[in-house]
Structures are given as structure tokens and as C-alpha cells.
Design a protein around this nucleic acid. Structure first.
Lengths: 288, 288
DNA sequence: ATGACGTAAGTCGTCCTACAACTTTGCCTA
DNA sequence: TAGGCAAAGTTGTAGGACGACTTACGTCAT
């Protein structure tokens, strides 16, 4: 056996913080001969069924490992089980585990050291507000522990401008939904959002719902899944952007100018998000 | 043989745009038995020696593939050679090629489709100024096709401020090198760089060289390799930042406020880079 | 001639086994 | 006690094999 006894079982580390009750998943695999050293073996194979059905096996494992790390099952700086252990745990090959870990490493979440092990990055868990991960503003606000809300300032259909139709790959003069909203976190305005959405793929009912809740939720109901976004960053100083009683005095914003693409590479939304400087912290983990 | 003849040899694709003269790398390996079907075999194995000596083999291959893609050897949307072909070409195993491609995929540079092939992302090549990849400003400028240059405005040692010593994990009052420089691209100022470097790990000679060329090159000579940077983004409007004849009038900047860490997680530099709004395009590819 | 279908080839995804390179620990020796 | 050596553990790379998926092409019935 190990002479170092670093981490023995299924993600329990010596420096583990107070974690919630470990959910033991029933083993319902049954295809390969179970190694079954004791109870704790191929325990997480079944866990890959639930919400992470999509994508390759490696991606599924990556997603699952990621959520476990984010939930604090392993404290930053602590070592993960060896690749072999994880492979046995999930009932997959070591190759699959490696692709998963490579993915996590490229996201800056873990730190792989040759001959030593894979460690949870010291920052890793802080990057929740990171830009590079594609998630909606409200989602990000919620993850940061605030309560997000929206106020619709404008919502009408009009012809797309030349610039917009170029970005969205539209014919000139095509109709778009012009959505202007203020984004709040705990009642304080943090951003002004200007979204432009082609109406050709939407019916009247959809148009109405767009104004209300999360835009992305509506897209999901019609089978459009955001896969990528091409974003530009700019500093903007202007009095023409904000409105309302909480309009910031100095008019200084960080602009996220981006086009959203679905999984087929088709653009489906063009949005300009003006973040009030100082109210919203953008953190990026840059890696080699 | 292939009945489809998609791409045959070493990265030549049917839809390739007008690329510059293909630089054929001399084969100067000599350690492993050359397969040598003709000229075009294990051609790129040697290419991994030159500037990309560091990191695992997979990373080296990734770096090399990346530069080839960036140079336009394959046009966006076109297919890369199969993993097997690339493996033979570089004289490495398919496993290594896969880790390389996984890396490129996570950076949004390529798009892997099961059963079909690996394709260069439509955006991919536009991300040259991407933030998430950790590279020096001068390096980025050079990759964009401009000629970078620097002008040192200030370079003196002083005691670290409280804020700086907190970021750099220093004792209060410790000495730091305060470096203030203007960054030019083709003679036009694009950024103002404020770097703070603890002097305890540097001797007098190093301090002098810091002001001259690339800061990162000096760090490399003393064995410090930048591995990560934790960056914050801000919009700044101020007249106190720039200097010189090209000082921008409106004083609007995009601030990249970042701490650099080496591979051991130790901070070794704190820098504020003020990019003149409009002169430098920040593009981020956001992925799920 | 044309359209649907099956087939075959190509490519990525996963698995297995083995070994090399590296790191850490701990014991052994001088 | 200090130094070095050996062993065990871990990640990196290799080679071969097969499954899953995609695409092009030829065949066959209409």
C-alpha cells in the first residue's frame, strides 16, 4: 500500500473543510466486473447519468469533478486522488480521466504536477465572476451571493442597423427586437444591457417573454443553446447610456460588446453590456 | 487509401488562402528511426526543438500547432489532418496529439467533431489579442503584425505601498522596482505600463536590464517562469496616467490590473497596464 | 434519370497495457 | 547528524485495438 497515504478514498483529503453530507450514489453499472475493494468503488459512475448526459465521457467526468471541486469537496491546494483512483471510482479508463483533467487544467481550476499529483488551484474557486466562462449576467450575480433583478426600459421591434446586421449575419433591413434593460444586484444598478435579437426565429409570444425573465431561458425553449460568444472589451465614458434615478454621475462604464453563437456557429444575439465601473468586479485567470 | 482525399500531406487544405511561402523545416532529429516515406514525414518533430522547449510534449505540440494555425497555414473552417497523420508528422503518439488538440479546443481555437475531424474555429484566428492567454504585451503586438517598442519613463527603487505589499505578499516597507513605460505599436502609443517588482530576488545588474528589453526575458534568466496571472478589468478616465507628446486627449483607458505568479504560486510582479481606448482591441472568446 | 438506401472508409472516442520521467518519502550509510 | 540512495507513488508517453459517429459513394428500386 501507499507509504504516504495522501488521500485514500473517493476525494476525501486530509485538509478537507467542512463539507456537506456526502451523497452516496447507488452503484447501478453492472457491465464491467466490479473491483469492489469494499463499498467505495465505481461509486461515481452512476452520478454521470443525472444532469450531465451530454458531451463525451471525458467532458461529463470533467463537469462532475468541477462541480465537486466548486462545492468545496476538496480544499484549494489539496491533492486530488490519483488519476488511476479517479478512473476506478468513475468506472472509466485513465485516458478519459486525463482528458477531463486536461480540461479542468486549461480552465485554471487544477494544477497538474508531473510525478506529484493534481492539485486544486489556489484561485480556482474564486473565478466565479470570470469572463471567459459563458454565463448570463443574472446567473453570475446570483453565484456571487447577490439577488439579481431586471427593469425593462424599452422593448420594441425595429429594423436592424447596418452594423447590427453585419454582426448578426442578417439581410439589410431585417426586423430585430431591441431590448434595453437595467440590471440590479440587491437593488443597486450594476449594468445597462442592450440586446438585439432577430425576430425571424421568434413568434409573438416569445417576443413578449423575452422582456420578462432571462433571455437565455427563452432561447432554450426553442432549442437554441448558447455555445460561444465573441466579445470585445472597451472603456466608455458617456452620459447617453444610463437612465433612471440611479444613473451614475461620472458615466464611466466597462463595455462588453459581444455576439452570441449557438452550437452550430450561427449568431443569434448581439448585446452590449455596460457595466458601471466599480460596481462589478471582473476577474480573469490568465494561464499559459 | 482515402476515397475522399480531404487533406493529404502536412496541413495543406483545399480551401487554403494565399499564405506566405511555406517554411519547410529541416529534419535534424536523428534519435528515432525515421519513417521517411518520402520528404514529408516526421517533418515537424524537429520544429519542436527551437523555441518551445519547455513543458510537456503535448504542450509543445499544442504550441506549435497553434502558431501554424495563427500564421494562416489552415484557413478558418478548414479541416486539420487527422490525429494519426499529425502524430506521424511530429513523430509522437496519438495520445500526445490528443492532449495537444484538447488544449487548443479548450482555448476555442479548434472545433473537434466526432467522426468527422478537427476544424479550425471560425473565430479562432481573431483571438490574437485574447486576454485569457498569458503573454506579454510586446509578444501580443508582434503576433498582430506590428512592431512593438518601449520607452522607459521611470525606473527607480522605492518602498512598496501597503496595497502593493499586500498583493505581492511582502513585508511592509520592502523595496520594489517601480517601472513606468510607454508601449508602442508601429510608433503609436497603445498602452502605459506600470510594473512593480520586488528587488529581493534581483541583483543590481538585473535591475538595470529590467528597464531595457522584455521584463519577462529577464525573469526567465533567473528561473522565474510566469505561470498564471490574476487580473482585474476596469475602465479608467484620468489625466494623471499618460505622459509625453502622444498623450491621449480624452484620457480614457482600459486598465488591466494584475498580479503575476510563477509556477509555484508565488507572486513576483504587480502590474497595471493602461490601454488607450480604441487603439488596442481586446477580444475574448467565451465558451461553456 | 432520380431518389432512397446500404455500405465502406475515414475519423474521433475510449480502453488496455506497459514503460519512462519525475517527485516525495524514508531509510540507510558514512 | 548530514548526505545520499532506493523505493514507491504519480503523471507523461507509447502502441495497439476496437467502438461510435460521420461522410461519400455506389447500388438498386422506382
Amino acid at each position: 500500500m501507499s507509504t504516504r497515504t495522501p488521500t485514500s478514498g473517493v476525494f476525501d483529503t486530509e485538509t478537507r473543510p467542512a463539507t456537506g453530507p456526502r451523497v452516496r450514489n447507488r452503484v447501478e453499472v453492472g457491465d464491467d466486473a466490479p473491483v469492489s475493494i469494499s463499498d467505495r468503488s465505481t461509486a461515481n459512475r452512476s452520478a454521470l447519468n443525472a444532469p450531465s448526459k451530454s458531451g463525451s465521457l471525458g467532458r461529463q467526468v470533467a463537469r462532475h469533478l468541477r462541480s465537486r471541486i466548486m462545492q468545496g469537496e476538496v480544499s484549494p491546494g489539496a491533492r486530488l486522488p490519483s488519476e488511476t483512483e479517479i478512473a476506478v471510482d468513475y468506472g472509466v479508463s485513465r485516458v478519459t480521466v486525463r482528458t477531463a483533467i486536461t480540461l479542468l487544467e486549461s480552465q485554471g481550476l487544477v494544477d497538474v504536477r508531473h510525478g506529484s499529483g493534481t492539485f486544486v488551484s489556489d484561485f480556482g474557486t474564486e473565478i466565479k465572476a470570470g469572463i471567459q466562462e459563458l454565463r448570463s449576467i443574472t446567473e453570475t450575480i446570483r453565484e456571487m451571493g447577490f439577488t439579481p433583478s431586471m427593469e425593462r426600459h424599452k422593448g420594441e421591434t425595429r429594423a436592424a442597423s447596418e452594423h447590427e446586421s453585419k454582426r448578426l449575419d442578417l439581410m439589410p433591413g431585417e426586423q430585430v427586437l431591441d431590448l434595453q434593460r437595467a440590471v440590479y444586484a440587491d437593488g443597486e444598478v450594476v449594468a445597462y444591457s442592450f440586446d438585439v435579437i432577430p425576430t425571424k426565429t421568434l413568434d409573438a409570444q416569445m417576443l413578449e417573454r423575452m422582456g420578462q425573465g432571462s433571455v437565455f431561458e427563452v432561447f432554450e425553449t426553442i432549442g437554441i443553446t448558447p455555445a460561444r460568444a465573441m466579445a470585445e472589451l472597451h472603456a466608455v465614458s458617456s452620459q447617453e447610456i444610463a437612465w433612471g434615478p440611479q444613473k451614475p454621475e461620472q458615466g464611466l462604464f466597462l463595455l462588453l460588446d459581444q455576439v452570441h453563437f449557438d452550437k452550430d456557429g450561427k449568431p443569434f444575439m448581439y448585446s452590449k453590456s455596460y457595466f458601471v465601473e466599480g460596481r462589478f468586479q471582473f476577474v480573469i485567470l490568465r494561464t499559459r
